[in-house]
């Protein structure tokens, strides 16, 4: 395999990496850039949503994007959400409503929810369910996550 060099924007910073072409965005973020908030739960089959990141404004499974396909693109991970040490309203709401237990699915679920709120600041419960439908959780369950997204949307509308 011929290595490839890729330049992408990650959480607002330009990063250049040289890696083998059969690496996915998921493992490039984890291994080459040390961003381990992005998780692999299903073995890279796009089933679980734990590796959800925001790629050019859309929630995607990072395990189904080759690193070469991310060249020149902009990626947002969970590490980029807090600003100046302040958690993002979605992160606060997940903590406050108890939408986190083991935490493994949490970064992906929060990013799926953020992609929704970026597009639709006051979503219906059905829209929240739809946005989270690709994110599997095996311990907390989904009701508290839906409540958390609703609460974050309210917080953010007050802040505006």
């Amino acid at each position: 395999m011929k290595p490839i060099t890729v330049t992408l924007t990650v959480n607002g910073q330009t990063r250049t990496i040289t890696t083998l072409p059969n690496k996915t965005l998921l493992y490039a973020l984890r291994e080459d850039l040390g961003l381990t908030g992005v998780k692999d739960a299903c073995g890279g089959e796009g089933e679980c949503g734990a590796c959800t990141v925001i790629l050019d404004g859309e929630a995607v499974n990072a395990c189904l994007v080759l690193i070469g396909q991310a060249d020149g693109r902009s990626v947002e991970t969970i590490e980029g959400l807090a600003q100046d040490g302040e958690l993002h309203p979605l992160q606060c709401a997940f903590v406050e409503t108890g939408a986190v237990q083991c935490g493994f699915c949490t970064p992906g679920a929060i990013l799926a929810a953020k992609a929704l709120l970026d597009r639709d600041p006051s979503p219906t419960d059905d829209a929240i369910r739809e946005a989270l439908s690709g994110n599997l959780c095996r311990c907390t369950g989904y009701s508290k996550m839906i409540a958390a997204v609703r609460r974050a949307a309210e917080e953010m509308s007050h802040a505006r």
Binding site: E58, A59, E130, G134
Partner: peptide, 9 residues
């Protein structure tokens, strides 16, 4: 098809 993550790609 799939979920939003799948439909975006």
């Amino acid at each position: 098809v799939g979920a939003p993550q799948t439909r975006a790609r």
